[in-house]
Design a protein around this nucleic acid. Structure first.
Lengths: 153, 153
DNA sequence: ACCTAGATGATAATTATTATTAAAAAGGAG
DNA sequence: CTCCTTTTTAATAATAATTATCATCTAGGT
């Protein structure tokens, strides 16, 4: 598990996790490190493409898969929408605005306690994620809804 | 919020929630009520289609949207996979097996307590869902993986 | 400089879902 | 019961995210 910050040495990091150092990977990582919020593949593409015209979305998908497996990013998948990637790989949870889709991180002081039901005996817990849905202040203030896809960070 | 059981009067229920009583809706509801687990649109289609050849998937999507809005079912959406529908509309949570996709319900004795971060001030919580990922016993026993899409209930 | 495993990019394929729309059916009014 | 309006259905096309394919290219060791 790696925690990335703006002063991470990108080529070194890539070598450390056993990946070849390619300009594409450097560009993507660099973007993610500086990005506030939770980027989708398309966000990455839109941002990196101008300064790196060759870049293909396949490469981004590929790269994100690698990064995910190596613990550089965490994929957040919500029902309907596109996957988002988070350089915050600390265990954490999300508030999701039902109206604009905004994501806000939060942390639990301690894992929630619950008893496994009988039909789950032998289930080995590896990870948990709490998704809290509701309405963010902005959407509560303005007339709700019609905000979708505006502030989807 | 309605809790469906095997002795629910389906036509009456449909009328009560303000929907027209159609054979398609009756068939879908009847299937859901008797189904153990969490059905996908395709599950419904596969099950109902043989005895109701005309049924179209559009109708199922449509119907599930209505049922969801009226609180007859709860849609569970996980990242990659197809949406599932649960006639258990009580607030509850899920264990998800990473290998075979099996879903197991569980309940929290009390809501997890957490403090909203400062950038979430004004966020109005409406709902929360805890998703616990791991490996179910069956997948732990057999050689893992290659089970995907077998016991996806 | 050379070689080979691995990476890339273009494109096609897949999958879940939504939109469209003409035809059919539900349910109330007369 | 028949007519009428509105909703629903079903078939199809459209969309959108993601994965698969594969020829070409390149990183990094020799």
């Amino acid at each position: 598990m790696h925690n990335l910050s703006t002063d991470t040495n990108i080529p070194k990091l890539l070598k450390d996790v056993g990946l070849r150092v390619t300009p594409q990977r450097e560009a993507i990582l660099n973007f993610l490190i500086h990005y506030e919020g939770h980027a989708t593949v398309d966000d990455i593409y839109q941002a990196v493409h101008p300064t790196f015209p060759g870049l293909s979305v396949s490469t981004i998908y590929n790269t994100m898969k690698h990064f995910g497996e190596l613990g550089l990013v965490k994929e957040i998948t919500f029902g309907d929408a596109a996957s988002r990637f988070d350089v915050n790989v600390q265990p954490h949870h999300h508030l999701v605005c039902k109206h604009c889709g905004k994501l806000i991180d939060f942390y639990l002081p301690q894992p929630p306690n619950f008893a496994l039901p009988p039909d789950a005996s032998g289930f080995e817990i590896e990870d948990y994620h709490l998704e809290v849905k509701g309405t963010c202040r902005e959407c509560r203030d303005k007339g709700r809804d019609e905000a979708r896809n505006e502030q989807t960070q």
